[in-house]
Design a protein around this nucleic acid. Structure first.
Lengths: 199, 199
DNA sequence: TCTCCCATGTAAGCGGCACTCACATTGCGG
DNA sequence: CCGCAATGTGAGTGCCGCTTACATGGGAGA
């Protein structure tokens, strides 16, 4: 649709986001070069700046799409479960699937300072906040009696455990210490069990 | 000592490591530019390459110093404690002190792919392995009856929780969700309690 | 239907980066 | 005291993000 190549314009903005997303998934945030993207799309190196203030702005857009995907997966986890406990478990799995299935995107979303933190733009804050809400609600449903602070504590602790494990594995920091009978998959299951079954 | 500035040589290798360490602590790994370092030390931009194959090699050296510091802190935690439980707690605090006290260095050591993972050089593997051993032993001492796999599981789970929390906080990913009566310090204590008191 | 404007594109260039290579210098061991 | 290996230099390559002045053409208004 509308990819008319003959004339010298095109839907450059969308094409840039798509190409950047591919590069991120292939090699993480560092693999995105505006010059490369422009050249591979057949435009000049200055063209991208008509659509994005700078490299970060483009990456923020890609990260926002990643959060949208994560939120969709969370929604599936929520609606497809028959109990709060299984919903929680499926939510955790959705996070893990993103992290291990699309590690480049995951790094952009969570493990980089490219996705603005202090000065995070609305485009990013909204879907990231929605993801947090999903997590919070999933934890809250496990024990309707607990107050908000307790839910937050539990949600953040569990999130931290999963996130830390992912980070350490993907950074290769555990490789040397995983001797034979202990695989990362085993560990992951153990962590999931422990995290979900705590008081 | 031996910083004779008059003639055009010097202890460049050591000076580079020192300057790089300062830059890392001030602004993280990304703040290290070989050109900058060289210029600030009054040598040409090619000079550093007489002492380090590339930027990563220099950063590996800085990271190795960081692991040495961490190991020293672990040793203090071990010897200064009156029970395995307090030793474990002090060990965890040593990790947290490094993370929050010297975040730039911490990022270099754990949250970057600059410190080689797959091709990690011996200079890095040795002290990193020692740090892991300290953690493993501290966990093992908590319950002398448990086997190695169980100790590993527990050690990695606890490490993951602390590491994940640190990563999320330092990445600014929790800021939006920390409403008033819940501070990061509170959370940290709660996490520490939960992590250390589990079965 | 024509015209003009503005969104979108371009070419050229700036400064910075990691890294290389041919060449210069110097302090130390024989 | 001399020559060599270690160490430093200057110039250069190719990549990067980003800017500026200029070009172009599609669509809204007359």
């Amino acid at each position: 649709m509308a990819k008319a190549r003959t004339y010298h314009h095109g839907d450059l903005r969308a094409a840039l986001i798509r190409a950047a997303a591919e590069a991120v998934e292939a090699g993480g945030p560092d693999a995105v070069s505006l010059r490369d993207l422009a050249q591979s799309l057949g435009v000049s190196t200055a063209a991208p700046y008509r659509h994005f203030a700078d490299r970060r702005a483009l990456l923020n857009e890609v990260a926002a799409l990643g959060f949208a995907d994560l939120n969709a997966a969370y929604a599936r986890a929520r609606t497809g479960a028959d109990s709060p406990a299984t919903a929680m478990r499926e939510t955790a799995r959705a996070y893990l699937n993103l992290a291990f299935g699309r590690p480049g995107l995951f790094r952009l979303m969570f493990a980089s300072d490219l996705v603005g933190a202090a000065d995070a733009p609305a485009i990013l804050l909204a879907p990231a906040g929605q993801a947090w809400d999903s997590l919070f609600n999933a934890v809250a449903a496990l024990d309707p009696a607990s107050d908000a602070a307790a839910v937050k504590r539990r949600a953040i602790t569990g999130w931290s455990t999963l996130h830390g494990f992912i980070t350490l594995v993907q950074g290769g920091r555990l490789k040397s210490f995983m001797t034979e009978p202990l695989t990362e998959a085993d560990l992951l299951e153990a962590i999931l069990d422990k995290t979900l079954n705590e008081a």
